[in-house]
Design a binder for these strands. Structure first.
Lengths: 334, 334
DNA sequence: TTGAAAGCGCTAACAG
DNA sequence: CTGTTAGCGCTTTCAA
């Protein structure tokens, strides 16, 4: 049924090797022969099997992308960027939602190996022994996006999460806030931890006390922010500000307040993290730490491409700076 | 370097066939032998090459997913559902953002063929001659999600877009609105066209006039809705209501009004389409036509699985009913 | 510039 | 229950 290289060879009166050469645009083919073969391929609507190519080459033009959850706009943007760059170079991207679950990541890495992926970009950020081990045994390049692994040296595109946390806290402090609640990201995520560390260092630098019991760890989803907002409303002593581990949760907190007749930033100042599109699409434009998602995705994809085709080189690290975008969700305390 | 079936065979003192049998869990293997082989595989951390498996089987455990734009929450949800189901059955999903561009879709379909995908799920919805042709020549099953192609019979999961448009219009009409603006989806999308048709039929049924020049076609993005909202604000005679082709655009329109000091639904009633999470996450909870995104994705994935493994059967069609979710973005005209 | 031959890692009859 | 054999569709030396 399927037309193969053999068929093309027969019909154009040359050997399979020659056909293979025209497939891969090898220079050592007589122009006339090349045209003849191409014509036959056209007529028969021939498509070389990448599976077969992959088998002999040991690699396939596919790169895996591991992210936390595609429903988080932050990852959607990243994914889109990576896809744009990689597709343009003839690579496909295979998606994997890890749900921030190291086991899923590991399983996926294994599959990448089995399928002979050209590379894997990891955006999800957990750190376990098993994962590290799998990573070590991987035969394709890996680039880390917004995460780092002490025990695994590789190309990294990252963001200055520490400073991001710092300037977020600083902003709130300078606005006069003292009672600040924190809804951080998962505490097994390196980036979330860095943000929190920056945050607490800022408190210390400004002579404020950082209480471990003041921080709540969330799963980065909007609903979790909403729940947290509701929780704050039930408290006797409400904080005057809150620092959220990402925009989605920040937006959830704000909505909980609005839905209960309170005002933001009047009753609560909120600063988020990421600057997803939704941050400026709502009623209260969010003050947040901007991460250039698309650009970060682009850089990661480029690094991957370099690593796949290029000559070996020492691991590269690209770090994006944190920038606070001040909008309407924060205001000075009276 | 890489450990292959040959190595395993040698080390465990059996033939490659036997190893192959334990890989695929074939019953005809002595339990003792099986354990012995498994142990060796374990020790050597052996991973069978799916590329090789795919080559001989002619198919690979991967299904392609073509969507409009992953940044649209509607597609994110769908994608997640499909991934969840397919991954659980050992299939990977490869993502393709078509940008609603038929050429991209076609190119992608070609790649699916070259890679020997087990199947392709198409959610993006353009209809061209070339695409149809490529579809016909495809050697793997295709399931269509929220689109149909007159000239291509296959499994379909769809939504009653026509009725969705109808009840949206009906709702507005019954609320007393007469001057209703329309920001429809792309007019080469079957689902968008159906919604519009339902809409216009409702007008007719209620004795209202449908003016072709009243409809604007948008690209389903938030920013486009926002622009449209601004545009409405500049008009002398403003409509009292607007029907948007999807929630993202509806939300954009609302925001344009809010940002300019107007109120929704007081100054404008808005009904959307999709019921994405953001529909109820904002200041004005959106009245919209609910499409059960996750469930639709699940059904599509199941259909795909059936088609891949199952015995051949006539094309199935699953149609989800339209349901209006009335929230706060619409109100009666005074 | 071209072809013959070997092989990538695995599966699938067919014998035994 | 197990091994032998023959490919799957393509690339890649090596000769010619």
């Amino acid at each position: 049924m399927k037309v193969t290289i053999k068929e093309i060879a027969k019909r154009s009166g040359v050997s399979r090797s020659t056909v293979s050469r025209v497939i891969s645009n090898h220079p050592n083919v007589d122009e006339e022969t090349r045209q003849k073969v191409k014509k036959v391929m056209e007529e028969l609507n021939y498509r070389p099997s990448r599976l077969a190519q992959g088998l002999v080459k040991g690699k396939i033009n596919v790169v895996g992308l591991i992210i936390g959850d595609i429903r988080n706009p932050f990852y959607s943007e990243l994914t889109r960027a990576i896809e744009d760059i990689l597709n343009a170079e003839g690579y496909m991207v295979v998606l994997c939602d890890s749900d921030y679950n190291p086991q899923k990541e590991e399983l996926y890495l294994r599959t990448a190996e089995e399928l002979g992926f050209a590379g894997v970009i990891m955006t999800s950020a957990m750190e376990t022994k098993e994962l590290l081990q799998t990573l070590q045994s991987l035969s394709c390049p890996v680039v880390l996006l917004n995460r780092y692994l002490r025990a695994f040296e590789t190309d990294v595109v990252s963001f200055d999460n520490y400073n991001g946390g710092y300037i977020a806290a600083e902003h709130l402090i300078k606005l006069g806030h003292r009672r600040i609640a924190i809804l951080a990201g998962p505490n097994n995520s390196t980036s979330s931890k860095d943000r929190l560390r920056g945050y607490s260092d800022a408190l210390r630098d400004y002579g404020l006390e950082y209480k471990e019991e003041e921080v709540t760890y969330g799963d980065l989803r909007w609903a979790t922010g909403y729940e947290f907002g509701l929780h704050l409303l039930r408290r006797q002593e409400r904080p005057t500000a809150v620092f959220a581990g990402n925009d989605l949760m920040a937006l959830g907190i704000i909505q909980a307040y609005l839905d209960n007749g309170l005002k933001v930033p009047d009753d609560l100042s909120v600063v988020g993290f990421d600057d997803i599109p939704a941050a400026y699409m709502g009623a209260v434009k969010l003050t947040t730490v901007r991460q250039p998602q698309y650009e970060m995705g682009v850089e990661a994809a480029k690094l991957m491409l370099e690593r796949i085709k290029g000559i070996p080189h020492a691991p590269k690290r690209i770090i994006f700076d944190a920038k606070l975008v001040i909008r309407e969700s924060t205001k000075p305390i009276i």
